[in-house]
């Protein structure tokens, strides 16, 4: 068969596969279970680098560079930063196609999540080498938990190389609502940043995903949605379904190289949506 013939078959096969498998983006998960808690108490943080809509493949994580929580009760309350890295333990996470990858979890004791207020969990992972793209990916990730309804520092920034500053409480969103945020790099807005939005399509368990996918995407562009920030780095995302949604701004951080290869420093924030009953 001629090279042209092989190329045509390749293109057709790619198109067919593209149609059958919804596009799904890399997302660094930092999953606490419930984000809006009536009471404080121990929580298990799950850290897995995956494609949450498809459920995999699961990427191998190295030990994170940093894991901490910054808590604050009330708008004018004192901030307290607590290092959690020593709690991070590796394990093998079973993905949706029974693939496995090294993930981390941290059992955060009740003494660390006791008071009313906001708890901004921050994960700074080690760069991950994406061999298929010959580049590193490092996703600075925030997940915000609230205890008891007294807000604190959910809307603040935390001097990360890149981060998404929320304009809505990430733990207080009804289905059908809108989540807004601003993409920042070195503290400054990133105009027209590329942003991916993805629904966590299965429930994370202690060892891997549980249950079947909740949603089927009829088109690749719906599995992992891609949007752009506006000229001021701001964006708004509709939230049509209850559950967890990942929002990631790609290649927006200030450092562009790691170990002689390209580095994509991304900013990820997690949003939980609650059904209106």
């Amino acid at each position: 068969m001629s090279r042209v013939g092989l190329a045509v078959i390749g293109v057709v096969a790619s198109a067919l596969l593209g149609g059958a498998v919804p596009a799904s983006a890399h997302f660094q998960m930092l999953y606490p279970g419930e984000s809006a808690r009536m009471r404080g108490g121990a929580l298990d943080l799950l850290m897995v680098f995956t494609h949450p809509f498809n459920g995999g493949p699961t990427m191998k994580m190295e030990k994170p560079n940093a894991l901490y929580v910054i808590t604050q009760r009330g708008s004018d309350g004192e901030k307290e930063k607590i290092d959690l890295l020593s709690l991070a333990e590796p394990f093998e996470f079973v993905g949706g196609e029974k693939d496995t990858g090294t993930a981390y979890r941290a059992a955060v004791p009740a003494t660390r999540v006791r008071s009313l207020g906001d708890y901004v969990f921050v994960l700074e992972p080690a760069p991950y080498l994406e061999e298929s793209e010959d580049k590193y990916i490092q996703q600075f990730t925030k997940t915000i938990v609230n205890v008891g309804g007294v807000p604190g520092n959910w809307d603040q920034t935390f001097d990360l190389p890149t981060e998404i500053r929320p304009l809505n409480k990430p733990y207080a969103n009804w289905t059908g609502g809108v989540f807004r945020g601003v993409v920042l790099s070195a503290g400054k807005p990133v105009p027209f940043a590329e942003i991916e939005v993805e629904f966590v399509n299965r429930t994370p368990g202690k060892q891997g995903w549980t249950g079947k996918p909740q949603v089927k995407a009829p088109h690749p562009s719906l599995g992992g949605q891609s949007i752009r920030a506006d000229a001021n780095g701001g964006f708004a995302v509709g939230l049509p379904r209850a559950g967890w949604w990942g929002i990631g701004a790609l290649n927006v951080g200030p450092v562009k190289e790691h170990k002689g290869k390209k580095l994509s420093q991304d900013a990820v924030i997690w949003v939980q949506v609650t059904t209106v009953k």
């Binding site: 009760r73 009330g74 708008s75 004018d76 309350g77 009313l116 207020g117 007294v150 807000p151 604190g152």
Partner: peptide, 8 residues
């Protein structure tokens, strides 16, 4: 104690 709007 606190308030739902973050007041002290």
């Amino acid at each position: 104690a606190g308030y739902s709007d973050g007041a002290s």
